[in-house]
């Protein structure tokens, strides 16, 4: 799409674009290029010589059982977070969309958690699930459940999933509610006159109309679970116990920051980049189709 009437100046637009393009070049394209370049290099143990090793870093990466485990951890974690936060959000949005008293108040009270930082969500959940100071953690121990998410793999995973899903519910709620409100009332009335019961009506009429929103949220939630949950994992479990909650992004961070293995860390960056590009393409191809239909 283009405007018909425009301004004739030739130099000015470059000036207007300069700040954004300069930042993009220096902090986006140059480092991304570097990541790709490092991924094909290897430094010797003393950091003196570097040599080109082709795909060796990638081969090593995928031969590493811990990396494969991190992939599995990430998939399990992301699917759980996405399913959990989207279903809770859909339930709440469907109910908040009904014509009931105080509907506006409910909406405000469900939207504000959008403002909570992932790392802060983790701190809030610590006060719930910490084995000695958390409300629920203590309760579980008092009931005879050996609860300590800092020692037990499954419990650690459960806590980071719950905290991550909890933080994302309000985002999903906002989109589901907007999607529901965009459905023409006439469609709903027609379905009601047909005599379909509310729950049946929801799955046969409303949900199909919501599917573009649901699909969009699916991609956003997976990206969120991949990257933005770093703060939650770092604050609650630091990837542990052992490697029980070590996701791909956490592993890349550890390799670069702690183990200072730049080649391997860069190779992991490239793998993550390919995943993001894939997800973005899926999302935009889908949205394009929706715009045209």
């Amino acid at each position: 799409m283009q405007r018909k009437t425009i301004f004739p100046q030739k130099g000015l637009p470059y000036l207007l674009l300069a700040p954004q393009l300069a930042i993009t070049a220096v902090f986006f394209f140059w480092p991304a290029g570097q990541a790709v370049w490092y991924a094909f290099l290897r430094q010797d143990a003393f950091g003196i010589r570097t040599q080109f090793v082709g795909f060796e870093n990638f081969a090593d990466l995928f031969a590493d059982p811990y990396y494969l485990q991190a992939i599995w951890t990430t998939v399990f974690f992301s699917v759980s977070v996405t399913v959990l936060s989207m279903s809770v959000a859909l339930l709440l949005a469907a109910l908040a969309d009904r014509e009931i008293r105080a509907a506006g108040l409910y909406r405000t009270l469900l939207i504000w958690p959008y403002a909570i930082a992932p790392a802060i969500a983790a701190v809030l959940w610590l006060f719930l699930f910490h084995p000695s100071i958390g409300l629920l953690g203590r309760g579980l121990n008092a009931m005879g459940v050996a609860w300590d998410y800092r020692l037990n793999d499954g419990q650690a995973m459960l806590v980071v999933i719950l905290a991550s899903a909890w933080k994302q519910v309000s985002y999903n709620f906002i989109f589901f509610l907007a999607g529901l409100q965009a459905i023409p009332r006439a469609v709903l009335e027609a379905a009601a006159i047909d005599g379909a019961r509310p729950i049946r009506r929801f799955w046969t009429v409303v949900f199909p109309l919501l599917s573009p929103t649901a699909f969009f949220l699916l991609v956003v939630n997976i990206v969120y679970a991949f990257f933005d949950t770093f703060g939650i994992i770092d604050a609650l479990t630091k990837g542990g116990p052992g490697k029980a909650t070590e996701t791909l992004i956490y592993r890349a961070y550890l390799d670069g920051r702690v183990n200072l293995d730049l080649g391997m860390s860069a190779a992991q960056s490239v793998v993550l980049m390919i995943m993001v590009i894939g997800l973005t393409i899926v999302q935009f191809r889908f949205i394009e189709r929706r715009v045209h239909y």
Partner: peptide, 19 residues
């Protein structure tokens, strides 16, 4: 500008830190 959507800070974190 559009393509930067696909380069979140998390995937290029160490090279960006180096810059």
């Amino acid at each position: 500008i559009f393509i930067t959507l696909m380069l979140p800070v998390e995937v290029r974190i160490f090279p960006t830190f180096k810059v």
